[in-house]
Simulated scan of single mutants.
Amino acid sequence: MVFPEYRPRRMRRNATLRAMIRETRLSAEQLVLPVFVQPGRGRREAIASMPGVCRLTVDELVKEARACLQCGLRALILFGLPEKKDALGSGAYAKNGIVQQALRTLKDKVPEMLLITDVCLCEYTDHGHCGCLHGREVDNDATLELLARTALSHAEAGADMVAPSDMMDGRVAEIRSTLDEAGLYQVPIMSYAVKYASAFYGPFRDAADSTPQFGDRRAYQMDPANSREALREATLDVEEGADILMVKPALSSLDIIRQVRDEFDLPVAAYQVSGEYAMIKAAAANGWIDEARVMAESLLAIRRAGADIIISYFAKDMARALGEKA
């Protein structure tokens, strides 16, 4: 048998060679850990559908942030669980809301940590939808003011970046204008530019108690069947002033991450969502897969698709594993 002159296996013979020519690399600096902050003190409530993830009070969140820094993880994205909910989601933009409290405390206690905030109303509304209602429909334009108020309150409390996830038309422009008018032009917007109405969000809704009381979110989140629409959505957010474009969910949207990466020169983020995390955890708990290897492989796939930033519930574990290998 005559072999080709080039034999690819030559460069796979040992770990040093493989590492030397590795095309895609993952580092802790590219990872963001989502955290759920709740009222009270000294409480860490486990989330059954997301093993290893807890709802944290502000004091416990400070401990978590310090633990993250120790393993090289330097960014969090905050989701709030208010004491009370109402039709307008007023806890989202309250001056002393739970996320605002957490921001001020973290900036005081752990100033090295980069703090991103989710800007949406679904965790704060008693109906569970991402905006205020007109009858049984989400009123897009009336919601914009509330989202901008939320982003402004987060920035004033110390957020380094705001991340609108609501999928209302025009919200990036409204938030950018509001921040700029307040002199907060240095605060970037990481837009959930492509957010599909995905079945992979189930465990998050348990964690944030944000399941809609009626209907669903398919009237404002995107149809998972659509890719050309993803580029139209991203284009709109670029034109409105987004600084980073996010694709969500990540693993079932690797093709979309690549298309967004190829089309735009802004940084691209991807969110490995709760259901993607929970599936890996469940399979590992049953002994069907090697959790550490699948964790790393899944995150590398997201990077290989073109994401510069990865939001993942595995972020701390992955950062720790990367530190141990260094």
Rank of each mutant, 00 (worst) to 15 (best):
D108I: 09
D108K: 15
P111Y: 08
E112P: 05
M113F: 05
M113K: 09
L114H: 14
L114R: 14
L114Y: 13
L114D: 11
D118L: 07
V119I: 14
V119K: 04
V119N: 02
L121M: 10
L121K: 00
Y124N: 09
Y124G: 06
T125R: 05
D126G: 14
H127E: 14
G128D: 06
C130P: 00
C130S: 09
C132K: 08
C132Y: 08
C132I: 14
C132P: 04
H134A: 13
H134D: 15
G135P: 02
E137R: 09
E137Y: 06
E137L: 11
V138N: 00
D139Y: 06
D139V: 06
A142W: 06
L146T: 01
L146P: 00
L147E: 11
R149V: 04
T150M: 11
L152Y: 01
H154L: 06
E156H: 09
A157Q: 10
A157D: 09
G158A: 05
A159C: 10
D160F: 02
V162F: 01
V162I: 11
P164C: 07
S165V: 01
S165F: 01
D166S: 14
M167T: 04
M167P: 03
M168D: 00
D169E: 12
E174T: 15
E174M: 15
S177Q: 15
T178V: 13
D180P: 06
E181W: 05
E181M: 12
A182K: 13
G183C: 12
G183M: 12
G183F: 09
L184T: 07
L184S: 09
Y185K: 14
V187A: 03
M190R: 07
S191L: 03
S191M: 10
Y192S: 06
Y192A: 08
A193E: 05
Y196T: 00
A197F: 05
S198E: 11
S198W: 09
Y201L: 11
G202S: 15
G202T: 12
P203C: 11
P203I: 05
R205Y: 04
D206W: 05
A208W: 00
A208E: 04
D209I: 04
D209S: 14
S210D: 05
T211W: 13
P212K: 08
Q213A: 15
F214E: 12
F214S: 10
G215N: 06
R217I: 02
M222Q: 04
D223Q: 08
P224G: 08
A225I: 12
A225Y: 12
A225T: 15
S227H: 13
E229A: 11
A230V: 10
L231H: 07
E233G: 03
